[in-house]
Design a protein around this nucleic acid. Structure first.
Lengths: 104, 104
DNA sequence: GACTTACGTAAGTGTCAACTTAAATATAAG
DNA sequence: CTTATATTTAAGTTGACACTTACGTAAGTC
């Protein structure tokens, strides 16, 4: 979970995520978007993202196609919510309590 | 915004954020929670978090007291939601359909 | 089998950031 | 002004990691 946070907090890797977010892409297509960076370098970054659970791989012929793995971001979202405005949290909690009470 | 992401993606700094989240703390109190780490080291981390907009400082006598700055996390939340978009779900579904078709 | 395409992996290197110790700064109190 | 306390800033060291080039691997084509 923290591994995912570390993985995406690197400029090249973050760019990869933004690219793949729009539509799944092959490793070669991803690497094509980076000039001044070799293909192995990009491949290594993809490996980190995959290990962190932010990307999934699928093979098609000699190509490997990657897409976002939304579940990998779910945990991060929860992690961040802990730092959200306490006043909002209280409001939210109160609203949910109210909701429960109303249902019973 | 990305600076904030990088700032919190470091174990010591993330721990600092978790500590201060509960209640504001002085630099000394924060440093007291880390054994095997000098005060200057912690101070430098605090500096990074402050610069990234995740902490705010307030002075009281010789002490400097820090607390979370929720606005600093707001942008990050939005950033993450870009990867948790309903459109992604559609993409995933389409990809799975494609996968099935390819296999048959 | 030989070749090509599309990748990943291995091994080595250079840079940067997380640390250290030492010195500086700010506020308070005698 | 001197001393004490709380903390940052300066300067220098070192290990991790983002790169490179070279090699390995897997699938497709002739």
């Amino acid at each position: 979970m923290f591994e995912a946070l570390q993985a995406m907090a690197e400029p090249t890797r973050f760019t990869i995520l933004q690219l793949v977010r729009k539509s799944e892409m092959s490793a070669g297509e991803i690497a094509g978007n980076f000039k001044g960076l070799t293909r192995p370098a990009v491949s290594q970054h993809i490996g980190v993202l995959k290990k962190a659970g932010l990307l999934v791989e699928r093979r098609a012929g000699t190509s490997r196609i990657y897409r976002i793995r939304p579940q990998g971001f779910a945990g991060l979202k929860i992690l961040l919510e802990d730092f959200w405005d306490p006043r909002l949290e209280k409001l939210k909690a109160a609203a949910e309590k109210e909701e429960k009470r109303r249902k019973s």
